[in-house]
Design a protein around this nucleic acid. Structure first.
Lengths: 200, 200
DNA sequence: GTCTATATACCGATAGAC
DNA sequence: GTCTATCGGTATATAGAC
């Protein structure tokens, strides 16, 4: 999407991100990352001092990219924000099913693994979640006047998405993601300040 | 709560469950489980054929216990179901903070780790999530007449709880859990069929 | 910057004494 | 049913040639 140079460092980071999100941080070995990125272990250590540093780079870069992608999806979707929300959840369900229920949130698995065991990585995931919430809250503020209400709705969108990703992956069924979409659009409708475009 | 006999098998399963939920499945070694349960590795292999079998037993037993606990919390809370929901989320936030943001959902971390890598364990987590959804849907059916609506609300409660657990653990902040509680109660209010007890 | 070889430690699992 | 010793394999990380 953005970065053109397919150099070794990028290949390593991308392969690591894909493996971390699918099977978790602990279960992914450096040998596997090297094989997936067609690099040598020595090259990984040339670009990253250790596995934790690689993970932190992957969390921050992948988090920024995913947040930008979601916001772009909302902004370039239907004009009505509630419809855009519903379309985004439907799109997430399609994409998840298309990858065999493998690729959902890029940092969710790592976030749970490190929350109580690795403070630097926990902090990295926290900063990504906070940035996502900020971005969503700014988008929600377009149709929810109360700033606290906009932030609550943003949190509801993000937590519903994360939880629905978890259930849909475990069940191998888009149902939870679609149900979460229905609930979030209903909630957004109830919270929207400006009811323009809503027929009686 | 239920089982009185503190025999070796129970100690192993309980210690394994605690470690799995806090730091994940892959990151937890049998040596650590043995140390935490004051058993020997040989004893673990006496009761469970391998690590996967231990995990499956932990997922199913822990899942059943947690589901029963949540339903009991809802049923023995305030008479008004919406108030009971809000109290349950507030209670979850208190409990999470009290454990240093360590003990949230007993199977969430494992579920994400195994969703794409371990089919028997993935199936175990799916069955637990389905049982939870069924139980919640039955409870929701008390005040939401439409069965599909009750099931959607049950899914919304569960996905919001899981996603909010994730964010609250990562941020070390009860905020997301409390915000999810506000959103879920608002949603339940909008969906409730019987508005008895709701003052104007 | 790339690659090989290796150090050290721990992994899950097994065998067998008691 | 409990415990010790140990197997083969892999983990992260390092040293150093090229």
């Amino acid at each position: 999407m953005a970065a053109p140079p397919n150099d070794t460092r990028d290949r390593i980071a991308q392969a690591a991100g894909e493996l971390f999100r699918r099977q978790g941080y602990s279960a992914t070995g450096l040998q596997q990352i090297a094989a997936a990125s067609q690099a040598r272990i020595g090259s990984i250590y040339h670009f990253f001092p250790n596995k934790d540093a690689l993970a932190e780079a992957v969390i921050r870069a992948g988090g920024a990219a995913y947040g930008a992608m979601v916001l772009a999806l909302l902004e370039h979707g239907p004009d009505d924000p509630v419809e855009a929300l519903g379309a985004a959840f439907a799109r997430a369900a399609d994409d998840l099913a298309a990858t065999g229920y493998a690729d959902a949130c890029p940092i969710a698995t790592i976030a749970l693994e490190v929350a109580s065991t690795n403070e630097p990585l926990r902090r990295a995931t926290a900063e990504v979640f906070t940035a996502w919430t900020d971005g969503l809250a700014a988008w929600c503020a377009r149709f929810v006047a109360d700033p606290e209400g906009a932030r609550d709705l943003a949190t509801a969108i993000l937590t519903s998405l994360e939880g629905a990703f978890m259930l849909s992956r475990a069940l191998r069924d888009p149902g939870p993601l679609l149900a979460a979409g229905r609930s979030v659009t209903r909630l957004a409708t109830a919270m929207r300040t400006d009811p323009a475009g809503t027929p009686p």
